[in-house]
């Protein structure tokens, strides 16, 4: 719960090296911090500022702009219930109320055991399965009270561990950065195209 661990730090340094200007790595590093701690901690923001050469206030300014970056602790699973028009017509508000009852928390809050955070979200482009919800940005739907209950209990029992990683982990496949193409080669290619 703090600055980057050694492993994360080496990943962070890789990310910084990808960009001509280190500041460009601010948002990827915020995601990395979120992967480590579930949310972007103050210590992580200060560490990111050191890594990219800005101030912690600037990192906070950037991180606080984006909904996907959480600056407060959230549950292991962030459940977003869509209430946009397609889902709404198919009973999203009922689903949201049910979700509140099942989890026993209001929208925006986290359960006592720290497992679930409930959110109301705008269209998540899963309209064909309305009413839909997302758990750590993985889609589920159509959902009613029963299927929602079963989703929650599966998440709780760990049955969906393969499918839904803890909040903050965007992908579990690590891709290597491609080899850098030298500028000369790009220029050469461009010159070739121009001819």
């Amino acid at each position: 719960m703090a600055r980057f661990s050694d492993e994360m730090l080496s990943r962070a340094e890789e990310l910084v090296a990808l960009y001509p200007d280190p500041r460009s790595a601010t948002i990827p590093l915020c995601h990395l911090a979120q992967e480590q701690d579930g949310y972007v901690t103050n210590e992580a923001m200060a560490h990111i500022a050191e890594l990219v050469g800005s101030t912690a206030a600037e990192v906070q300014g950037t991180a606080s702009f984006y909904d996907m970056l959480k600056l407060e602790p959230v549950g292991r699973y962030v459940i977003g219930v869509c209430t946009n028009i397609a889902c709404m017509l198919r009973g999203a508000y009922e689903l949201l109320e049910n979700a509140e009852e099942v989890l026993d928390v209001p929208v925006g809050a986290t359960t006592q055991d720290g497992l679930f955070t409930l959110e109301e979200v705008e269209c998540i482009a899963h309209c064909d399965q309305a009413p839909a919800a997302q758990v750590n940005y993985r889609y589920f739907g159509p959902l009613d009270r029963q299927s929602f209950e079963s989703l929650v209990s599966k998440l709780r029992s760990g049955e969906l561990n393969e499918e839904v990683p803890p909040h903050g982990t965007l992908i579990r496949i690590r891709r290597e950065a491609p080899a850098v193409i030298p500028m000369e080669e790009i220029d050469r290619n461009r010159a070739g195209e121009a001819e």
Binding site: N42, M45, A46, S54, T55, A56, A57, E58, V59, Q60, G61, S64, F65
Partner: peptide, 27 residues
Amino acid sequence: ADEVAGEPLIDFAGRGGTLRISTFSNV
């Protein structure tokens, strides 16, 4: 703070109607 003084210790936080000037935590 950023351009003239070169000490960006205050920045906007948030977005839209809740955009606010903020320092970082206890800095």
